[in-house]
């Protein structure tokens, strides 16, 4: 077999055409034997591509990390999560109206100003504003500089939208707020209210409008003040033992205040002046 195979393979030769094509190919690939061919750049290109991919992945990751929250509360209560480029990553509603609004909005990846404008212009919020409801916008960010920049932005958005209270805070209470099922802004209002009335629950606050909460706070504050005054006048007459008498009188005052519907209305203007 060896001989026929040898003879058969001897007839197989590289033709002149193939050799000529190869010479031309080599000359072209090596640019006339002057430079390394494009093939040799592959490692460098691959490395550059890898770096680019890693950069993109890094940027992608950074882009999707929420760093700030804007809590918008009127009656719909919702929060916009922002990345470090001030773009909206997500919208979450914290009560029934807020959830409905969050569903209806299309603000993902918008700049926060555009998003806030869109929220304020939405029918649900616009109706509330038309009824002179109280609007609260809280900017929550751990970085003081960003806080101020975002606050300035939301203040300019809220200007001309009636009663609006814009403020900034760090994120220390954000988790607590979410745990209670409230947006940051509403949670702050809840904390203020619960300091005056220990029986109030986050669930009760959830469905209340911000104006109702503020009015209640104002009413409780003023009635507590009145009761305290009453207590002190009573105690003056009673002589010694004033201290304990005052304390108990204040407690009673709070309970009464929460029950007095008519009183809340009166304190409304007081709140309006404050903000």
């Amino acid at each position: 077999m060896s001989e026929p195979l040898k003879e058969a393979l001897d007839q197989v030769r590289a033709g002149e055409e193939l050799k000529e094509k190869t010479r031309a190919f080599l000359s072209e690939k090596t640019r006339g034997y002057q430079k390394a061919p494009a093939v040799s750049r592959r490692p460098a290109l691959s490395a550059a591509a890898c770096v680019l991919v890693l950069l993109c992945l890094g940027l992608w990751k950074v882009y999707f990390i929420p760093v700030s929250v804007i809590s918008i509360d009127i009656n719909p209560s919702l929060e916009l999560s922002l990345n470090r480029f001030d773009r909206v990553l997500s919208v979450e509603g914290y009560n029934e109206d807020g959830q409905a609004l969050a569903q209806a909005l299309d603000v993902r990846f918008l700049n926060y100003r555009d998003a806030v404008e869109q929220v304020l212009a939405s029918p649900a919020v616009a109706d509330c504003l038309a009824r002179d409801e109280y609007l609260s916008i809280a900017v929550v960010d751990d970085d003081a500089q960003r806080q101020q920049a975002l606050l300035a932005g939301v203040q300019s958005c809220a200007a001309g939208h009636g009663q609006a209270h814009c403020y900034a805070a760090d994120g220390s209470q954000l988790e607590e707020a979410h745990h209670a099922g409230l947006s940051y802004g509403k949670y702050q209002a809840y904390l203020e209210l619960s300091a005056l009335d220990g029986d109030i629950t986050p669930q009760q606050v959830q469905s209340m409008t911000m104006r109702e909460i503020r009015e209640l706070i104002a009413a409780l504050s003023s009635s507590a003040g009145d009761s305290a005054q009453d207590g002190s006048s009573q105690s003056t007459g009673q002589g010694p033992g004033t201290g304990s008498g005052q304390g108990s009188a204040q407690g009673t005052g709070s309970g009464q205040g929460y029950g007095q519907g008519g009183h809340h209305g009166e304190s409304g203007h007081h709140y309006g002046q404050t903000h």
Binding site: A14, K21, T22, F25, L26, P37, V39
Partner: peptide, 10 residues
């Protein structure tokens, strides 16, 4: 054929 000779040149 061409690849082999290019490898040689490089």
């Amino acid at each position: 054929f061409q690849t082999v000779f290019l490898k040689y040149v490089l």
